[in-house]
Design a protein around this nucleic acid. Sequence first.
DNA 1: CTGAAAGCGCTAACAC
DNA 2: GTGTTAGCGCTTTCAG
Lengths: 331, 331
Amino acid sequence: MSITTKEIARICNVSRGTVDRALNGRSGINSETRKRVLEIVRKYNYQPHLIASTLSRGKSMSIGVVLFDLKNYYFAQLSNIISLSARNEGYFTYIAVTEKNMDAERHILSNLASRRVDGLILLPIIQGSEYVKYLKSLEIPLITVGNHLPGIPGISINDVKAAYDSTAYIAGAGYKRIVFICPPLRKKGAAGGRMNIKTQDLRSRGFIRYMKQHPDLRYDIFTRKDYTDSALDLVQHGNIKTAFLCSSDVYALELIKCFRLKGIHVPQDAGIMGFDNLDILTYINPHLTTVSTSLEIVGKESVNMLIRLMSGGSIPQNTYAPHSICSGETL
Amino acid sequence: MSITTKEIARICNVSRGTVDRALNGRSGINSETRKRVLEIVRKYNYQPHLIASTLSRGKSMSIGVVLFDLKNYYFAQLSNIISLSARNEGYFTYIAVTEKNMDAERHILSNLASRRVDGLILLPIIQGSEYVKYLKSLEIPLITVGNHLPGIPGISINDVKAAYDSTAYIAGAGYKRIVFICPPLRKKGAAGGRMNIKTQDLRSRGFIRYMKQHPDLRYDIFTRKDYTDSALDLVQHGNIKTAFLCSSDVYALELIKCFRLKGIHVPQDAGIMGFDNLDILTYINPHLTTVSTSLEIVGKESVNMLIRLMSGGSIPQNTYAPHSICSGETL
DNA sequence: CTGAAAGCGCTAACAC
DNA sequence: GTGTTAGCGCTTTCAG
C-alpha cells in the first residue's frame, strides 16, 4: 500500500527507531536528523499504519459509539456531537448501530472490543446483571448515555425530575386529567433477556410522583403499543379534557397524526407534550411542547467522562445534564 | 486483556499453528485435536484479536461508510441498511460523519485508510480531479452513493430522469409555472475546493430538459439560500399559480413552514414537491408529494458493488436504482 | 543521540 | 497432522 518506516529508515540511512522518534516527536534525536527524516516522510507521503501501531502500543486512539437506532434524530445528532468532541481530543469515532436487536448489540460490542477501541459509549437496549457482567468482562472503559445500567457510569438528564416538571407544567396549563404514554420498544433478538427501559421507567416514576401529590387530578398510564387507539377513545368518549405526556417525541407525533386524521384538534380537544425536542419538530404543525434534553451537553460531557475513565480516572455513577421545557402550541 | 492463542496452545500442549487451524476451520488437523482445542477456547472465552489478525492477514473484514451528515434521515436510514447488509456478508461497518466539512472528510478518509478498512462507501461532498486522485491514492476499493465522482464507480438514482419525471408530474397537475429550488449546501473547511453538487446539477438538468421541451410553461431556478423569500415573493405577487420542485425534501419542508407562517395555503395557493421521501414525512401535514429513491435498493446494492470490487471484480461506473413518485397533497 | 533487537498476537509457508 | 519459523509494521527498551 504505502511506504513503511522501514523503507524510510533505509532511504535516510538511519534506523527505524530514529524514524519513529522523528515521526512521533519523541526526544533524543538530533534536530537535523529529524528534519531530514520528516522531509523524506513528506516526500514519499508516508501514512502511519494505525493497525500496526495499535498492536504495538496497545492503544487505538479510537472509541466506539453503539446506538440502537440511527433513524431517530436524537441519536443521529448525538453521534455527530460525540464524533466531533472525540476528534478534538484526538480520538477517532466508530459509530455502530444495533437496530434494537439484542443479538446485534452483543455482536457489535464484541467486535469493537476485538478491534481494540479504547473506550465505548453505549446507548443500551439490553439490561440485567448478566449483561452488565458481560460488559465488564470486555475490560474496556465504558459509559452509558440515556438508559442507565447499574454499576456502570452513565450520563442522562434527570428523567424523574424532567417528567415531574413536565407533568407540573401540564397541570399548570389547567388540565385535570393527564395520561402518560410509554409503549414498549419493539425488540428483536433474544440474547440477554428483557429490554432496557430504564428511561421510560424513570419518566413514568416522575409522572406518578407528581400525580400522587395531586390527588385532585386524574391520571392514567398507557403502556401498550396501541396507545393511539386508547388515546382516541379517551378523547372521543371522555368528559374531561385530557393531556398526553409522551415519553418520546415520536409518540407525540404519532398522536398528533392520529388525532388529525380523526378531526381532533390539538390543543382545543386534547393536549400533547413530548420528550426529547427532536430537531424535526421545527417542521411539525402544531408546534409541539416538549422537554429539551440538552443534547450538546450530553454529547460533549459523555466524551469528557469517557476520556477521564480511559486515562484511569474515576467518575460518578450518575451524571445529570440539565433539561428544560420548550413550550409550543400543543397544550 | 483476554487470553491469546499462545496461551491456548500452551494449555492444550499443541502449537499455535494448530490452534489457528482449529479456530479458523482450516484443514490439516485431527478432529479430536480440534475438539479439544475448541473446548479450551470456549472455556477460557478466547476472543480473537482482530487488530493482530488484520495486521497479519492484511484484511480487516471491515468497511467504512463516510457521510457528510447523519442528521438527515436519508443518510441515517442508508447507513442502517448498509451496516446490516455488510454484516450479513461478514463485514463490520464503521460509520463516520464529516458534517459537510471538507477537511474532516479527508481526515476521516485518511484515518479509515490507515486503519485498513477493506473498502469504503462514500457520500462525497468534495469534488474535483485532485480529490479523485487523492481517493485513488488511498488504494482502497471505493464506491460513491448519491453524488458521483468521475472515474469512481457509484450508485444513485437516475437524477436527470427523476427530475424530468417529477417536472412532468407537476405539469400534469396543471401548473403553468414551475420553480426548481436548489440552494447551496453550507460548506465548511477549505481543502479540495468546491462542494460536490452533482446530484443537484443532474436534477436541475432534468428539470430544464423538460421545461425546454415545453415552452408554453414558465420556469425559474432558485439557487440562493434565501429561496424562501423569493418563493414567498413569487406567490404573493405573481399572477400564475406556481409549483416548487425542491431538490430535497428538507427544502420543501422549509417552504411549507414558511408558507404556513405567511398564511399561504398549500396546494391552494402554491404547489410543492420534494425529493427523497424522507421517512419523517409521515408526520408532516399536508402530506408532501415527493420522489422516492428506493433507499433499500441503494443500500443493499452499494454493499454488493463494494464486495465485488473488493474481491477484485470490476463494476460499471454508474449503477442506477429505480425511483418513483409518491403522490401527496401538496400539488 | 542512534542502532539493534525483541515483541504486540495472529497467520501462513514450510518442514517433519 | 502437527510443529516451527518468519513475518505483518510499529514501538520500546537497552546498549553503545
